[in-house]
Design a protein around this nucleic acid. Structure first.
Lengths: 236, 236
DNA sequence: GCTGACAAGATTGTCAACAAAAAAGTTACA
DNA sequence: TGTAACTTTTTTGTTGACAATCTTGTCAGC
């Protein structure tokens, strides 16, 4: 399963999507923040969007729910998850356990080809960041972490990182400061520098600092969950 | 609709298993090694076993497949996963990333109640171990790791540990030495000692050693996958 | 005018029948 | 006797229809 550079192959057959593909598409839409937390994912709408039967959609939603990316309420339907502050804490705790080690392995195992891919990616991040394309910046920022997991060559941790990055995107959507981009690309540059020297320990340490930095820029004590958002909004 | 006597819905029909429950039951059966790798999980048989419709079973199998605990072959059905040596390596690499940190947090956060639960559990492990109840020993040994994850109080890592422990049970079934129990309970005792003093670093270090120890007792260069098991068995 | 029950509409959950594919069994033939 | 092609049977995959539930809209009664 190569997820490295497969951006161009999903154009060919649009009429027969597997459920894994649908899950991946929804993952990306959530990372891009095109699907904000709380969005209703009705089966009929998704059937039309992907041109598949209801069964396929239903299975996809079940998979998304098992990754805690959507909430599945009985007889109510599927909604994009709205992580609580406690869940956000858990997600970052897990990321701090896993990703420094992933970065260490990736730094030690990176091929020259991987380094070129990373360099290319960082260029795109810079462009998005300085071009004030917030949506692109967020997506690329998350993709950087997934890229490291792919380079680390461990499908188990790759799947975990994908899930955690996606959930982080939801968390940033809820608890992030509105105007500020949360992933500084300077941090990513520093991590890449450690890759150049294949310094795994350095990469791990920088990743730890990076994740802590992201977490500190969240307002986890701020507004409550999305349900009371409406209440708060209209309380004037 | 009916406002008169709305208490009539209290009929005693609680025998409807949810798919999460079915998944949990199959997880446990795999940990107990009652379901060895390669076992065919036919939909009809599972329907009868759990007294549920085919749809429920189908969704459960999908969830199990998403956790890589069963292989889902198109038009062929579901089979208990037979991890390859490479997958085994990945699972242990992931466990070595996560579980030492889980042990650290658990040691630092354990309440006195948690300590009593652990102590009780270790007693059971000793009994099973010295009583030559291999199946119980394996199950309890895995449960110990899950217990630590529960004490760590992080639902994200708890789910990951559950999956990794289950997959490890499959790995031991394939690559483990037949007569030897793979989890020494002395290791668990030592980890528990670190819990008594709330020494997180010590718990993490001991967990790392423990996992390495388990991995070293596997024969990852030995027999190939289960498919060729039959060939090997009847070659005499 | 507001509150509550009631009805209509829409959405989800479930089931049974059917289609498709693979596995098992059978026959023909070398 | 062994193999290959064919038929039967079993199992999986999909579609559609129906039941159950929730949401929305309406209206009577106070």
């Amino acid at each position: 399963m190569d997820t490295l550079g497969n951006a161009a192959e999903q154009v060919a057959r649009e009429d027969e999507l597997g459920e894994e593909e649908i899950v991946e598409r929804i993952f990306e839409a959530i990372i891009d923040q095109r699907l904000p937390p709380g969005t209703k994912l009705s089966e009929a709408a998704l059937c039309e969007a992907f041109n598949v039967g209801r069964m396929r959609i239903r299975q996809s939603l079940l998979l998304l729910a098992s990754r805690e990316v959507v909430d599945l309420l009985p007889n109510r339907g599927a909604f994009v998850a709205s992580p609580t502050a406690e869940q956000a804490r858990e997600v970052f705790e897990a990321r701090l356990m896993i990703e420094p080690n992933v970065a260490r392995l990736a730094a030690e195992r990176a091929t020259d080809d991987n380094l070129r891919t990373l360099e290319q990616h960082l260029k795109l991040e810079h462009v998005a960041h300085h071009g004030s394309k917030r949506r692109d910046a967020i997506r690329l920022s998350g993709q950087f972490h997934v890229l490291l997991a792919e380079i680390a060559a461990n499908t188990v941790t790759l799947r975990m990182v994908k899930e955690l990055v996606t959930r982080t995107s939801l968390i940033i959507g809820i608890f992030g400061s509105p105007g500020v981009s949360n992933c500084r690309d300077e941090d990513h540059d520093e991590i890449f520098a450690a890759f150049r020297t294949r310094d795994g320990d350095d990469a791990a340490r920088l990743m730890t600092d990076h994740l802590r930095h992201i977490q500190e820029h969240l307002e986890l004590n701020g507004p409550a969950e999305a349900a009371s958002d409406l209440v708060a909004i209209f309380r004037k």
